[in-house]
């Protein structure tokens, strides 16, 4: 940050393995910078929640319209795998929180370890998710490569919904549950991947010593993002896997 060397505030590094932080030129104090970024980030999280809010509204609307479809659809999902993933994400939220704590107390190694564990959690989550998707694929509940094909407007037969074993036979619009399931979990999964990428980016900075008791803002914000990803899953799990 070369521009404006006049009145930029610099936070010194707490030790030789750390780097100092220069407060952006248009802020007067580090506190102002911290609070501004944090307020902005909370607002961003609100937009994320509203984005998912639309999906939740669609879920409730069609759950109301086709309760049998949703009940039967929910039974096709493996709640044990869902519960496993829920535990993994909860644990990873804890490791992320410990990571933020480590940054605040200038413990560089611990920060790296906790962030690494969080990324591991994200990886386990995605692997489990992959096997769940694969099972649905094998049962013809969504056949991905054929999703791009049009459907037969006369019969309403969808190319991506084959239902080989007829598990959804007898309920109206059996595909709707799986359409909503895949849309919600895929968008959530995308957030998991973005979150993991952000944590890796934090680790890169942490390795250089950018984050310490004087400056841990990015760690804090990425932590908040990760908790949001966790929180959304906590709503998705009972709605999709444990449909009443």
């Amino acid at each position: 940050m070369s521009h404006d060397g006049h009145h930029s505030v610099v936070i010194p590094a707490p030790g030789p393995e750390f780097l100092p932080h220069t407060v952006a030129h248009h802020f007067d104090t580090p506190v102002q910078e911290f609070q501004a970024a944090k307020l902005g980030f909370w607002l961003f999280l609100a937009t994320e929640i509203l984005l998912f809010g639309g999906l939740f509204a669609a879920y409730f609307y069609y759950h109301e319209a086709y309760p049998e479809t949703f009940r039967l659809g929910g039974h096709q999902l493996d709640w044990k795998l869902g519960a496993l993933n829920t535990s993994v994400l909860l644990l990873s939220s804890w490791t992320m929180a410990m990571g933020v704590r480590s940054a605040q107390t200038s413990q560089k190694k611990k920060l790296l370890v906790y962030c690494g564990l969080t990324v591991l959690g994200a990886a386990i989550f995605m692997v489990v998710k992959f096997f769940e998707y694969k099972a649905k694929y094998d049962h013809g509940l969504f056949v991905f490569p054929e999703m791009f094909h049009g459907y037969d407007t006369a019969t309403g037969q969808l190319p991506w919904f084959k239902d080989y074993h007829g598990v959804m036979a007898g309920v109206p619009h059996g595909h709707l549950f799986f359409a909503i399931y895949v849309t919600m979990t895929a968008i959530h999964g995308l957030h998991v991947l973005i979150g993991a990428g952000l944590i890796l980016w934090v680790m890169k900075g942490a390795a250089k010593g950018r984050f310490h008791a004087g400056y841990f803002l990015p760690v804090d914000l990425v932590g908040l993002y990760w908790h949001l990803v966790d929180l959304i899953w906590i709503f998705l799990f009972p709605l999709l896997y444990l449909v009443p």
């Binding site: 607002l43 509203l50 069609y62 909503i180």
Partner: peptide, 24 residues
């Protein structure tokens, strides 16, 4: 901040509907 995300998910669902025929 509070209204636009809903438009975002709406146009996204329209795009999904056209590409994948999810049925929403």
């Amino acid at each position: 901040v509070l209204a636009t995300p809903v438009l975002g998910i709406t146009v996204l669902l329209v795009a999904f509907e056209r590409l994948y025929h999810i049925g929403i």
